[in-house]
Write a protein that binds this DNA or RNA. Structure first.
Lengths: 144, 144
DNA sequence: TATAACTCCGGTTCTCCGGTCGGGTTTGCA
DNA sequence: TGCAAACCCGACCGGAGAACCGGAGTTATA
C-alpha cells in the first residue's frame, strides 16, 4: 500500500512540467531532476514510460526536452500511476483460477482497490499544481 | 496495489477458522494448509503474527491448534491485512520531511489509501464466510 | 509418567524486482 | 560540423518477500 518512489518521482516531474505548461519551452531531464532531486538516470526511464503512454511528448536534439502531451486538467493521477506501475492493459490472465474462497477474497480486494482508484481518477494534474501553489502561499505566510 | 500472497494466505486461513467457529475444537496448521494448499511451514509464521496481534489464539500440545480469538463479526479485514502487512503502530516517523510538492502528493495518496482502508474496515470476517457459502451454493446450482 | 501431537522460535536460502549505472546511438539546433 | 540533448539497452546491486528447516517447549491423553 506504499507509494513507490517510482510513482512519486513521476508525479513530481509531471508537477514540474505542469507548472511550466503554456509557454512552448520544453524542459530537460537534468533541470527537472536537479530541481526535485531525483536521480536523473532513473527519471529518464520514467519519462520514457510516460511518453509511450502518451502522457508527455519529447523533443529531441539540442534545446530539446519534455512537454505535457495534453493539458494538466486532462491528465488524472490514475493515468500516471497506472501507467507507471504497469497495471494498465494485458496483464495476468492466470490471475483468477482460484477456489471459491480465493475468488471471494479477490473480489473484496478488487472493491477496495477500486475505491482507491476512484480517488486517483478524480484528481487531475491541474488540481495538484493548484494545491501546490496554495501550499507554498501558506508556507510563505507562516515563514518567520 | 497487488494483494500479497501473505495476506491472501492469512485471509484464507482465517476463513477456514471462521467457518469452524462455535465448536471449541482447534484446527491444526496442517489441516488448514492442506485444505487451502498453503505451504504449511509458511502458514505457521503467518499464524504466529496473527496470534501476536490478538486475532487468533493458540493451544499448544497434543490436540492443540488455532482458534479465532474473537467472533468472526468482530474481526475486520483491515485488522488482518494491516497486521500481516505490518503497517499498524510505530512506523516510519521520518516519512514526511518533504518539499511542499512532496507533501501535497503524499496527502492525495493518503486520501486514496484511506478510501481503500475504509472498504476493508467495513468488511468483517463473518461477511466473507457468508459470501463464501453463498457462492458455493450458486456454484453447486450451475454445476452440470 | 511417557509419548506423540502440537506450537513456538530462530535462522537460512532462494528468488524477484525496484532502483541504479554505464556506454553507445540518434536527432536537431546553431 | 559540433554539441547538446533525448533515446536505447543491458548489467548490476541490495533488500524485501516467500519459503524451508531444525530443534526446543508445551500439553492432552493413554
Amino acid at each position: 500500500m506504499e507509494l513507490s518512489s517510482k510513482s512519486e518521482y513521476a508525479l513530481l516531474a509531471l508537477l514540474e512540467l505542469g507548472r511550466g505548461f503554456g509557454q512552448g519551452e520544453p524542459m530537460q531531464i537534468r533541470q527537472i531532476a536537479a530541481h526535485q532531486n531525483i536521480p536523473d538516470r532513473y527519471l529518464e526511464q520514467l519519462l520514457a514510460t510516460l511518453r509511450r503512454a502518451g502522457i508527455v511528448r519529447s523533443q529531441r536534439g539540442a534545446k530539446g526536452g519534455y512537454l505535457l502531451a495534453r493539458s494538466p486538467w486532462q491528465i488524472t493521477l490514475y493515468d500516471v500511476v497506472s501507467c507507471i506501475e504497469g497495471f494498465d492493459s494485458s496483464k495476468e490472465p492466470p490471475a483468477t483460477p482460484q477456489t471459491s474462497e480465493g475468488s471471494v477474497i479477490a473480489e473484496v480486494w478488487q472493491t477496495a482497490r477500486q475505491a482507491a482508484e476512484d480517488v486517483l481518477q478524480k484528481q487531475t494534474l491541474q488540481d495538484l499544481v493548484d494545491k501546490c501553489k496554495a501550499k507554498q502561499q501558506v508556507d510563505l505566510m507562516y515563514y518567520i
